[in-house]
Amino acid sequence: MLDQTEDGYITVDGRKIGGVVMEMKNITLRFGGVVAIKDISFDIREGEIRAIIGPNGAGKSSMLNVISGFYNPQEGEVWYHGKPRPRMKPFQVAQQGIARTFQNIALFEGMSVLDNVMTGRLNKMDGSLWKQAIWKGAAEREEVENREKAEQIIDFLEIQAIRKTPVSRLPYGLKKRVELARALVAEPKLLLLDEPMAGMNVEEKEDMSRFILDVNDEFGTTIALIEHDMGVVMDLSDRVVVMDYGKKIGDGTPDEVRNNQEVIDAYLGVAHD
């Protein structure tokens, strides 16, 4: 059992985790008759890697979509930095410093890798047209700055070689990496990753795991991720939420949830009552 206090806790590998940044309180989300999320509560703490796992259709992606404003729950509240968050559109959530990737990859297929990454910087750009048109110096300085940040992230994720390649020509594994780059370039405080390693081979998975750990370590980014590969989840995450049929059936360190009987049953497909 982790010794959690209000200020945080020390992880198994000795990293210091801070206070709660995001808290889901009794979230319920329905699609017509389907209840995708049933009264779920959990928190995400500053600096940690928080995994959400569960069988197919458990409601994991739905949960990430609630956090990022793509879905609005019928019941419950999302608390961000100690305050209840009003109903928000995805663009507003993004402006609060929350970036994400998608299970089915959503890239700008018609653009190059570099343009995709640059588009991730849009929120950091000054929007007033007058300034862009008249005060060319400022606009140029800003452009250079954004460009530098983009190149830095591209180097970080080791995709320099494909900078100018149109995204539509890339294999699946690299697309996932470009999508991560586009999320990172916004310098998010909270990063949401929906199955960042789905469809990858062992080597690609190892690379991606390393990048996720490095992001967390070097930028201090808080990360919430959904992943099916148990080995990966055990290696990467500090705490795990387990979902099944829209309900939370486990929450704790990887070791704790691994030994939780309900979790084992869910994964072995024991009949539900």
Partner: peptide, 23 residues
């Protein structure tokens, strides 16, 4: 321009555009 870039992004993929904070 920022608006022009956002316009191209929206033209390319709505979901992706939303996720980078475009209204």
């Amino acid at each position: 321009t920022k608006q022009g870039r956002a316009m191209r992004a929206v033209a390319d993929d709505h979901q992706a555009a939303l996720s980078v904070g475009i209204r």
